[in-house]
Design a protein around this nucleic acid. Structure first.
Lengths: 234, 234
DNA sequence: CGTATTATTGACTCCATTCAAAGATAGTGG
DNA sequence: CCACTATCTTTGAATGGAGTCAATAATACG
């Protein structure tokens, strides 16, 4: 695990990742403590459940999943993380991670080390604000997921596709074409559906002209109709 | 809405609510800005969805629910808040609340005003740590809820009762006897079940000798058997 | 090229919902 | 204090959406 100094000011993700609300001098201060990590491959653990909290992480490229294990030995994919998104908050309270974070494909990330957080909070009020803003965003995301968990399968999958599209677009990727880094099984797990249901619904969406499906390549052909699935219906 | 100076140092909730990880002098500093609010009745709004964020709130007595509205006009009870618990985090990122908070019974709360938060973050690093610890706890709670949402109805209700019992106990109330401040409808909404299912399962738990049900009064007769519902079974 | 993993599709089953109707509780005003 | 009403709860019967089981097909990988 090689650590190396990085520059937030020149990172291709600036304004997307943490620094977006900070001044130039604040970004410079953060750059001094942020460390880059080496590349991981699909299936590699970024951290395990129970690992000591090492800091807040930012994904530079690739994607990851947060996984919790229940009392029955089943895995639960809590969330999917895309480039520019932060993770590690599940270790903030107890100093130990409450979830595992696993690479979904070849990926890179930065780390804002835990031992410099307390110092940064005092010297950079903007950082504290940014982190709180972020936790607030997580809250709203959770709220949506919670609402969604009571909705029919079709709606959950539509939301998943739209959400992925929007988040990728925000990061500069195409909003209408992307490759899923998850299996049908993983999508189903994340949405609380059987993998067969995911398969059937992707087919249905394709038959209805909403999307194109080629293996894991998804094309949004009619995004507004897809969005209507979330609004329409009693 | 009357505001009045309160003393965190002499609050019956100290060590339960925010101040638990803070020094005496830090608690004194917080006391200077915390304001008490007048009593609310069941159904009263603590804040509405979309309201401007006024600060972090702590429940002194009574209980409340966080409610989100979806695109279909349905309400969703995101969480239940008991004495000593904090709310308002849904407004931290956008400056506007993403949920409504509604009293479930006669209740009182304190408020840590938004406009003093930034100042406190700089002068009281311990406060920042406590708030982050709290958001981390919320994360773990959400993780549990997420896992639970894929489990059968029986397990969800068992978890709900156990969780209520533990949280009330932590606040000095009886762990084995309590009054639900929610209707069957509200419990069902919160757990993603029909109110009829909640009614049937409470009956079943009673018939199995796990609990006693008299209207909204619940007695846990066999807590460990109730807990087994969460563990046992494939 | 062969093997393991992943995806599709069909048939059957079941848990929880919905619909419906009756019963209990709490609150209100005469 | 009791009758009256609105709200909440219980219970039964029927329905349906998604899960499970099973077998085949397509991809990815070594």
């Amino acid at each position: 695990m090689t650590h190396s100094q990085v520059s937030c000011s020149h990172c291709s993700l600036d304004s997307l990742c943490l620094p977006r609300g900070l001044s130039q001098s604040e970004i410079n201060d953060i750059s001094k403590v942020v460390k880059a990590h080496k590349t991981l491959q699909r299936g590699d653990f970024i951290y395990h459940e129970g690992d000591r909290f090492r800091g807040i992480l930012a994904i530079k490229s690739g994607s990851a999943k947060l996984v919790a294990n229940d009392a029955h030995g089943n895995e639960h994919i809590i969330s999917i993380l895309l480039p520019g998104e932060l993770l590690g908050f599940d270790g903030l309270s107890t100093e130990h991670h409450g979830c595992a974070a696993i690479a979904l494909e070849t990926m890179m990330f930065c780390i804002l080390p835990a031992d410099s957080l307390e110092h940064l909070f005092q010297t950079l009020p903007g950082l504290t604000r940014e982190l709180f803003r972020h936790t607030g965003e997580k809250f709203l995301e959770d709220r949506n997921q919670r609402v969604l968990s009571k909705r029919p399968a079709e709606e959950r999958l539509a939301y998943f596709l739209i959400s992925l599209s929007e988040r990728l677009h925000r990061r500069g990727f195409s909003a209408s074409e992307f490759k899923l880094s998850l299996t049908r099984q993983e999508i189903g797990n994340h949405l609380g559906l059987a993998l067969e249901t995911v398969s059937r619904l992707l087919k249905k969406f394709q038959d209805d002209g909403l999307i194109g499906v080629r293996h894991r390549f998804i094309t949004l052909r009619n995004p507004s109709a897809l969005r209507n699935i979330l609004q329409a219906r009693e």
